[in-house]
């Protein structure tokens, strides 16, 4: 295995899939000549030309809709939102069109499309640019929602998303683009299936379910807890819809306690869904209430000291694990 950055892993996934299938194209703001607002698509224009790497005006509803229409008749578009915050002006296209037409047409029309881009808070970008978008999209039947935490998952899941025959909401971590991690060597193709969770760290004392940016907060917290003798088992769902609870349930049956850590707001969403499933699927095994460590229930402030309060921290994770472990 070699080490790649998260953004490079994503780029490789697109490059390989575009080489493999002429129906795949990339469309979005600044994806071509500018080389990508976050440089994920760097070099793709040179390689594939303007037919397949298509710069758009600032018109998310328009180009999301163009992608959906193109997918309805056989192309396999990758639609890049410069950030998921801007997807909200294309919400109707994703919700009313991409997610619905397969059923409205009694299964006659497929929509093989990937909507991708950076998601979640970055650093001090304020209220309108810090949304963690998973809850909006996980609510919708007819969509897949994928949120990879590591470079390896980013590549393998994006390749699967591009090959999927359904619309995929692909949430990349805005702060994770520079993260380095192991990715299979060149020429070794790895397709990570949509809808399969992953054991990220084994441990016998407490289960932690987490994904996205807090994944790294949790791993750091788990090391600190290990130094105090509490071994956490960390499960990354990787796909938030459909949700695979197999590993989580197995883990909770072993540890008898669980903390769910996510960046999005606490009201509803995949965090609440996981807690609901676990209390039903592992009720008899729980020795403590399920806890959640979440983004605070406020719009994201600008000031750094406040932003640090809003996002899940190692200390909050450690406190929660100790609470469910009844340990000081």
């Amino acid at each position: 295995m070699r080490e790649l950055r998260y953004r490079e892993a994503l780029r490789e996934a697109m490059l390989e899939e575009m080489e493999r299938d002429d129906r795949v194209f990339l469309m979005g703001e600044e994806v071509g000549h500018y080389q990508g607002a976050y440089k994920v698509s760097e070099g793709l224009l040179d390689k594939f030309g303007e037919r397949r790497v298509i710069d758009t005006p600032i018109a998310e509803a328009g180009f999301a809709g163009v992608g959906i229409g193109a997918a309805m008749v056989g192309l396999r578009p990758i639609i890049e939102f410069m950030t998921w915050n801007f997807s909200f002006v294309a919400f109707d296209q994703i919700i009313s069109n991409a997610a619905k037409v397969h059923q409205m047409s009694a299964g006659e029309i497929d929509v093989p499309i990937v909507f991708r881009g950076p998601n979640g808070a970055a650093k001090q970008v304020g209220s309108q640019h810090s949304h963690s978008a998973a809850p909006f999209y996980t609510h919708i039947p007819g969509l897949y929602v994928v949120q990879p935490s590591t470079p390896r998952d980013a590549k393998g899941l994006l390749k699967s998303a591009i090959r999927s025959n359904n619309p995929v909401v692909f949430l990349e971590g805005e702060t994770l683009y520079g993260v380095q991690g192991e990715v299979p060597d060149e020429g070794v193709e790895e397709l990570i299936p949509i809808g399969e969770s992953r054991l990220a760290r084994p441990g016998a004392d407490c289960t932690i379910v987490t994904w996205g940016r807090p994944y790294y907060t949790v791993l750091a917290a788990a090391e600190r807890l290990a130094a105090e003798g509490i071994e956490c088992e960390v499960i990354d769902p990787r796909t938030l819809r459909p949700l695979d609870t197999t590993l989580m349930v197995q883990s909770v049956k072993k540890t008898n306690r669980c903390v769910v850590v996510h960046e999005h707001w606490p009201y509803g969403g995949p965090g609440a869904e996981i807690v609901d499933r676990l209390q039903r699927e592992a009720f008899d095994y729980l020795d403590a209430p399920l806890e959640r460590v979440t983004g605070l229930d406020v719009p994201m402030p600008y000031a750094l000291n406040l932003e640090d309060k809003v996002l899940p921290t190692e200390d909050r994770v450690i406190d929660a694990v100790k609470r469910v472990s009844y340990s000081k």
């Binding site: 194209f25 037919r51 509803a61 328009g62 180009f63 999301a64 809709g65 163009v66 992608g67 959906i68 229409g69 193109a70 997918a71 309805m72 008749v73 056989g74 192309l75 109707d92 296209q93 009313s96 069109n97």
Partner: peptide, 15 residues
């Protein structure tokens, strides 16, 4: 909501 879809099928014709 469907006008962009029509642009999309037209985009496919051209592509």
């Amino acid at each position: 909501g469907h006008l962009a879809l029509a642009a999309g099928t037209a985009f496919k014709s051209k592509y």
